[in-house]
Design a protein around this nucleic acid. Structure first.
Lengths: 136, 136
DNA sequence: CCTTGACCCTCCAGTTACTGGAAGGACTAT
DNA sequence: ATAGTCCTTCCAGTAACTGGAGGGTCAAGG
């Protein structure tokens, strides 16, 4: 298969596939004409990568997961560890975004959003910091 | 004030403050010795930036917000528009993360996480795609 | 044989918002 | 003079691609 074929079948852009080769996630053969020549197994790896990335795993996590996937003597505990760490990071990100969201939604709801200059959003952003703590 | 002072008072790293100057968000004076010399107004802008960034606004949004903040004839509608767009992007991100989270949490809960190789997480990532669509 | 068009190649630059570090000048205290 | 802290600029790196230039390859049609 040429790169266009695996691109269509994996759903990954050709650019991304070349990038994955560059960083060593896949090692497709080469045809005599210099084109990359992908096997079903390469395609399988790419699909794996596509899914792992869709779940938000970092590239380096994907590398580890691929290695574990290929390792018949792996311990599922190692996989679970990676997934749980990632889950925790996702939870942190969600919490942070929800906190932003709450503040922002409040500010938005306070703003008339008309043609007058008064704006609680800017007021809040520009408010002087309350400096807590006495002389040092 | 030198950069160390505004760094402490704004909570922004000195590196970040230099970066903000480089991209034109602030224009501190210079002392004869070449040091940046920050006014209270510079500090105010930096605090504004720190808050806006903490709410997740992109740098270019911050630039627009600062301009509106300085513009007495602004319309609050412009500010609200920026904030609402940002809110929508945050909501999209949260939704995406929650979707990832759901899938991932399910997979994690299915994985024994012991010393045996069987792993539903890897099984899922490596599962063959169901190809929908007939011959072409 | 030539052309057209789709496909492929490599290499370089840009994205976002910083962050780290090297190399060196300035200022303060002793 | 010296040590230590602060400041300067400049360069490189981060994460994971993405866009584009410049050019080779291949299959179909005339």
């Amino acid at each position: 298969m040429n790169i266009g074929d695996v691109s269509r079948r994996s759903g990954l852009p050709a650019k991304t596939i070349r990038y994955y080769e560059e960083i060593g996630l896949i090692r497709p053969d080469r045809s005599p004409n210099g084109y990359r020549s992908f096997s079903e197994s390469d395609l399988h790896r790419l699909s794996f990568l596509g899914r792992a990335r869709a779940l938000g795993f970092a590239i380096e996590d994907c590398r580890s997961l691929l290695a574990l996937y290929a390792d018949d003597s792996r311990e599922s505990g190692q996989v679970k560890q990676i997934a749980q760490d990632h889950l925790r990071r996702i939870d942190e990100k969600i919490a942070q975004l929800q906190s932003m969201r709450a503040t922002l939604a409040h500010l938005v709801s306070c703003c008339a959003g008309d043609d007058r200059p008064d704006c609680p959003i800017l007021d809040d952003l520009g408010a002087l910091q309350a400096e807590s703590g006495e002389a040092g």
